[in-house]
């Protein structure tokens, strides 16, 4: 088994757990967890865009009022239930983005004809970015783009599409990923009805 498929599998389980989670606190914990995983796999995390996303989706949802009125702006009520709904949706979106980052971080190979086309696409993409840096005169822009595209020959030899080194799985990796999946499922269990009977304070959380 390839290393990249391992991440695909554990990522899929975590996404499943995120979808099934109904509590806001649980969603928050899951989102935090998947962001840490994505960071650990070499992805960047920027706080501000995510906060803007979170706030804008939460506020947008107050259009459909639901539940206790916290305060009113003019005659427009800001309701607790609507904010929680919005926050839930925002967390779902953010966690999906980072789960996807995490799953893609080891560039899984897509098999078949389409996979070949995509490797060709990325080959040209590499050429374009390196060539673009070499062009000194970038104005007028159309001239510069012409220079860039004329400089790239559309005939490539098959060997130049670099096959990324395939990393095979070690037992340790499998154990780590099983741990990730278990943590996600454990959290899901704690917040389920059965878990609420064992730990009553969970039922008090939104």
């Amino acid at each position: 088994m390839k290393y990249s498929s391992l991440r695909l599998i554990s990522g899929a389980f975590i996404i499943l757990a995120i979808i099934l989670s109904e509590s806001l606190v649980l969603r928050f914990l899951m989102t935090f967890y998947i962001i840490v995983l994505a960071l650990n796999s070499g992805r960047k995390f920027r706080l501000l865009p995510n906060i803007i996303l979170f706030i804008s989706i939460s506020l947008a949802n107050t259009i459909t009022p639901y539940g206790l009125v916290l305060f009113s702006i003019g005659s427009y009520p800001i309701t607790l239930g609507a904010l929680i709904n919005g926050a839930n949706k925002a967390l779902l979106l953010i966690s999906f983005i980072y789960a996807s980052h995490y799953m893609m971080s080891s560039r899984p190979q897509i098999p078949g004809k389409l996979g070949h086309l995509i490797s060709m696409q990325f080959y040209y993409f590499d050429r374009l970015t390196t060539k673009w840096r070499q062009i000194e005169k970038k104005t007028p822009i159309i001239g510069a783009i012409d220079q860039l595209l004329l400089g790239i020959e559309t005939e490539i030899d098959e060997d130049s599409i670099k096959q990324t080194e395939i990393k095979y799985v070690k037992t340790k990796d499998v154990l780590i990923h099983i741990l990730h999946i278990s943590i996600a499922l454990l959290l899901l269990f704690i917040f389920s009805d059965m878990g609420k009977n064992i730990l009553p304070f969970i039922a008090q959380l939104p």
Binding site: P65, Y66, G67, L68, P77
Partner: peptide
């Protein structure tokens, strides 16, 4: 002294 608001269509 508390107030709640719901959408009639939900």
């Amino acid at each position: 002294d508390k107030e709640w608001v719901y959408d009639l269509s939900v």
